[in-house]
């Protein structure tokens, strides 16, 4: 597992039923591209997050396949519909097999 991986998400605490909300996510990860070389000229092996998946109450919102061309600390901003009260589940999949998860509950206002 890469060191110091911390997911951060910004989701409104409440929304009207059927409302479209903007979600911002950021996860701290060095996203080593596999193109860089160290001071001895050896390639630094690739180590990135390769997939990011968001669901709401088990229903799919967005599924992103990530390549090395995504910057350090991958940031994503997108919109989702909130049909009822429930929970957004965010999952990041690391190259080394680690899975980082976080979730945010949304109430109906």
């Amino acid at each position: 597992m890469a060191k110091g991986v911390k997911p951060r998400v910004k989701v409104p605490k409440s929304a009207a039923a059927g409302e479209t909300v903007t979600i911002k996510t950021l996860i701290s990860h060095k996203m080593e591209s596999g193109q860089r070389k160290d001071s001895d000229g050896n390639l630094i092996p690739r180590s990135i997050i390769n997939r990011f998946h968001v669901t709401f109450n088990g229903q799919e919102v967005i599924d992103v396949t990530i390549e090395p061309a995504v910057s350090t600390n991958p940031y994503f901003e997108f919109e989702a519909v909130v049909p009822e009260a429930g929970e957004f589940a965010f999952t990041w999949y690391d190259d080394d097999g680690s899975v980082y998860e976080t979730s945010n509950a949304v109430a109906i206002a």
């Binding site: 479209t20 909300v21 903007t22 591209s33 193109q35 669901t55 709401f56 229903q59 799919e60 919102v61 967005i62 599924d63 992103v64 396949t65 990530i66 390549e67 090395p68 061309a69 995504v70 910057s71 991958p74 940031y75 994503f76 901003e77 997108f78 919109e79 989702a80 519909v81 049909p83």
Partner: peptide, 30 residues
């Protein structure tokens, strides 16, 4: 896609039924 990168693929996003809009913002390397 970034046409001039060593690997041109950057991200592929699939939108599910609860996607509020078919839009995505991110930060990439060029």
């Amino acid at each position: 896609f970034a046409a001039g990168n060593p690997t041109p693929e950057v991200v592929t996003a699939k939108f599910g039924p609860l996607a509020g809009s078919q839009a995505l913002s991110t930060r990439i390397r060029l």
